[in-house]
Amino acid sequence: MAVVGAGDYEETRYNLARELGRRIAQKGHVLITGGLGGVMEAASRGAKEAGGVAVGILPGEKEAANPYVTVAIGTGMGHGRNAIVARSADVVIALPGLYGTLSEIALALKMEKPVIDLGDWNVEGMVRAESLEEAMEIAEGRGTAKKG
């Protein structure tokens, strides 16, 4: 499962992403992020704390990975790495972010991947989740999908 969102953060969003990463790992899933800071760091931290695997697909060199990434993949592709993030995931969970996050959402939808809206994206084709619990239920095929 991929978690995508802003590279900078405030405490509430950081804590949400951290808990999301933790739950993904606890359920036995591999976490995929862009490997940098903000939401990516928080989700990776949660996954690592839960004993899971956090894969970071980085825009540059693998040495730039946040300290919680367990498998760093340096692509040297800049924002082009967003396509790898989208392709590598079975499900994408999108928190608030900017254009990089929007590109990951668009690429995942174009690749016909399920994309869960845990922000305020309102992008057609995404499935809206009102809570972290609902996002996990939908991601694991147990929730009710409300397409946006």
Rank of each mutant, 00 (worst) to 15 (best):
E124F: 15
V71W: 07
M126W: 10
K146L: 10
G7D: 03
G148Q: 15
E134M: 13
Y9H: 12
L107I: 13
L95F: 09
V123T: 08
M1L: 10
L31D: 10
P59I: 02
V30W: 09
A65D: 02
G7A: 07
D8E: 14
E61K: 10
L36D: 06
V55S: 01
A54E: 05
N82H: 06
S88A: 14
I138T: 05
R13C: 01
D117F: 10
S44W: 04
E11K: 10
A145I: 11
K62V: 03
G56K: 05
G51Q: 13
E19V: 05
H29A: 10
R81E: 07
I105E: 02
V115N: 00
R23H: 08
P59V: 03
D117W: 11
D120M: 08
E10P: 07
G38C: 05
Q26Y: 07
A106E: 06
E134W: 10
M1W: 04
H79R: 09
A89D: 00
G35D: 08
G119E: 02
A94L: 15
G80M: 14
L36F: 12
G74T: 08
R81Y: 08
I84M: 15
R22L: 12
L95H: 01
D90S: 14
E133G: 11
V4P: 06
V127G: 07
L36S: 02
T12S: 06
R23V: 03
E63A: 04
E19S: 01
Y99E: 14
D120G: 12
E140F: 14
K146C: 04
E63W: 02
E124Y: 15
G143C: 14
K146G: 03
E137M: 14
G56D: 04
R142P: 02
E140P: 03
A108G: 08
K113H: 12
A42H: 07
G74V: 02
L58C: 03
A25M: 06
G125M: 08
K62S: 11
T75S: 10
K146F: 12
A83L: 14
Y9V: 09
A89K: 05
E133V: 12
G76N: 04
G28H: 15
G78K: 07
L132H: 08
E49K: 05
V123A: 02
G52F: 01
M126V: 15
G51I: 08
G119Q: 00
I93H: 02
T12M: 07
G5T: 05
V91W: 03
A94G: 14
V92I: 13
E124D: 14
A108L: 10
L107G: 00
L20F: 00
A42V: 09
A135C: 11
L16V: 06
P96R: 15
N82S: 03
V30S: 11
A47Q: 02
G35A: 11
T70R: 06
K62E: 14
Q26W: 09
V91A: 08
A42N: 07
A86C: 07
G100W: 09
G5D: 01
V53S: 00
G97K: 02
G148V: 11
V123K: 00
A83P: 00
L16A: 06
R23G: 05
V39R: 10
G100T: 12
P67L: 11
V69L: 12
